[in-house]
Amino acid sequence: MLRLPPFRLRTPSSLEEAARIVAGEGPAARFVAGGTDLWPNMKRRHQKADTVVSLMAVPGLAELRGDTGGNLEIGGTVTLDRVERDERVQTRFPALARAVASISSPPLRNMGTIGGNLCVDTRCTYYNQTEEWRRSIDYCLKEEGTVCWVAPGSSRCWAHTASDSAPMLAALGARVRLAGAEGEREIPLADLYRDDGIDYLGKRPEEVLSRVVVPAEADAGHCRSAFWKLRRRGSIDFAVLSVAVALWQEHGVVTRARIHLGAVASWPVGAEKAAEALVGRPVGDEEAIREAAKLVRRVATPMDNTDFLAQWRGVMAERYAESALREASGLEVTGLAPNHRLVG
């Protein structure tokens, strides 16, 4: 049986204490919430820690509530399962419910947290391997090595974002609160990410993602959203492509749009030009949707670092963008749906 290496577990009871421990110990310390990302990574030893700081005993982090402005606030350690089953999420943010429900499998969603999913490590089939396997390739740029085997001529790491909630929440315009030793700050979720497989999070190591704020203006009363996820099997698998869209309209005309993609870049890349192509056009304008879908494909950079042929995933980015936009626009969607059936 593959086992965890030894480490010291700390269970602080406040965010300040948690931040202090990590700040004090530096890179040898890591946060853990549900553990569904960190423990496999530590068992395979491509993430290492002498000290692991559990956030599960920090009071208030597991709250899911609506604030006065109609925003929805989801604490960092709220489990994915609770998000997916929450009635407010299901009725007001159905595409978010769908995105979260598509993550891995039911028992894992019962353990994994929204904060963990937003901070989930980038993935690559050269990286998510055991210590011995990685020795066989002399490691890779992301961990201990000098070459990104996905693109050996490149100077960067091409590991891909693996979060399903990130592109959806980014499209909905969510913000996240980061708590550090010196207090909290709030930033747009989209700004949490960087286009780099290694340094993929724009937060300081000691900062805790304490809360996600989903704005009222993105709920079903104001915004039409959709989430499409491509993966091999109907469960368990990470996305090899996901498309999250959110459309705002007035009098049948698109006034604002956001499209974010999962798994085809190192971050939940936004397709701004595609979104712009929809603005000012009637909701459900099939020509506009086709144009936007073509533009979506341009920002997708699928690499040979996950399941399926990378080139085909590029083809699918356009197809899925079109399908997601059609669904959000209230048009009929034909052909086969995500994971060969509709998610949710």
């Binding site: 553990g35 496999p40 399962d81 353990m111």
Partner: peptide, 24 residues
Amino acid sequence: CELGECGACTVLVDGRPVLSCLTL
């Protein structure tokens, strides 16, 4: 699988399914 990928280690904690290979 040792990594939360197969469900063989599922137990219930407070009535909910948990992958016992991925929790301390």
